[in-house]
């Protein structure tokens, strides 16, 4: 086993090395989940409460402003968007802060740095599973007929799009955060603003112009949420818009990944 340490030259994803550290992904994710649920008084309920309470607030708001909900009860409509959005926002926020939070570890030991933001995203994915169970409860409570086949096919695709997009954005923000500490304040603000530019609490159909729909589709979360809603509402999915979201997610993924790989060597020097 021979290897060379020198100044970094070319950027690669380093999949082989990541694979050899696969157990560390597990341990970091396991640690975060364990600590999160150990510390919080509500334990696992917390993962459910967050989208649930937000849903109730928006239901109240939705009734007041009479926001359309594509002919399904507004609570179910809002929750279907919020569960994916909560996953995205906590993944991006936690991944974005992860390198700074773990600076004491990265200064003392080497392992592929990507493990840290990826674990934050896996934690958010775990929370999603909890939230999704509640969603099934809501579907039963409101007696909504869905095609189980579509749910099984579409929801995982939405989750994958969310993971890809949040990884790209999260790792990009994580690198920037190490170098420019202002991002600590920018990230929550940015994520919050982005929510209103995503069809979370309103349907895409509120947009009147076709170009506006395309523009919104550039936001990958728009496609992910629309796909999941398609599984429950059964209206025709705008395939163009969906493809735009997928391509956008993939571009964000690679931009984030390469920027992270490009800058990670110096994290220990400046963190």
């Amino acid at each position: 086993m021979e290897y060379i340490i020198s100044a970094p030259k070319k950027i690669s994803i380093g999949i082989k090395e990541l694979w050899s550290y696969k157990e560390l992904f597990y341990f970091f994710t396991w640690r975060d989940i364990k600590v999160k649920y150990k510390q919080a008084m509500f334990g696992f309920a917390w993962a459910i409460l967050q989208p649930l309470v937000t849903m109730l607030i928006f239901t109240f708001l939705g009734n007041m402003l009479s926001i359309p909900s594509d002919n399904i009860p507004y609570p179910v409509f809002a929750y279907s968007g919020l569960m994916l959005w909560t996953m995205f926002s906590s993944a991006v926020t936690n991944a974005g802060n992860s390198m700074v939070t773990s600076s004491n570890i990265i200064k003392k030991i080497y392992f592929p740095r990507l493990i840290i933001p990826v674990s934050s995203i896996l934690v958010a994915a775990f929370d999603f599973i909890m939230a999704f169970i509640v969603f099934i409860g809501l579907l039963i409570y409101f007696n909504i007929e869905v095609s189980v086949f579509k749910v099984i096919c579409f929801v995982p695709i939405s989750v994958i799009i969310t993971i890809i997009a949040s990884f790209g954005l999260g790792s990009f923000l994580a690198s920037l955060n190490v170098k420019y500490r202002d991002f600590k304040y920018i990230i929550p603000f940015f994520v919050q603003s982005l929510m209103f530019l995503t069809p979370v609490i309103y349907p895409v159909s509120v947009l009147k112009y076709q170009w506006a729909k395309y523009l919104m589709a550039v936001n990958p979360m728009s496609g992910a949420i629309d796909l999941t809603r398609n599984a429950i509402i059964n209206n025709s999915l705008n395939l163009d818009c969906f493809l735009i979201s997928v391509v956008s997610a993939i571009i964000i993924f690679f931009v984030g990944l390469f920027y992270f790989r490009k800058t990670e060597a110096y994290f220990a020097d400046i963190a």
């Binding site: 290897y3 340490i5 020198s6 003392k108 030991i109 020097d269």
Partner: peptide
């Protein structure tokens, strides 16, 4: 320990390294 890269030069290591900086 590969925590930070050198600016110049290189190191060839032939074995599994464990570092205990802490």
């Amino acid at each position: 320990s590969k925590i930070t890269p050198p600016t110049e030069g290189r190191i060839i290591a032939r074995g599994r390294v464990a570092s205990l900086l802490e």
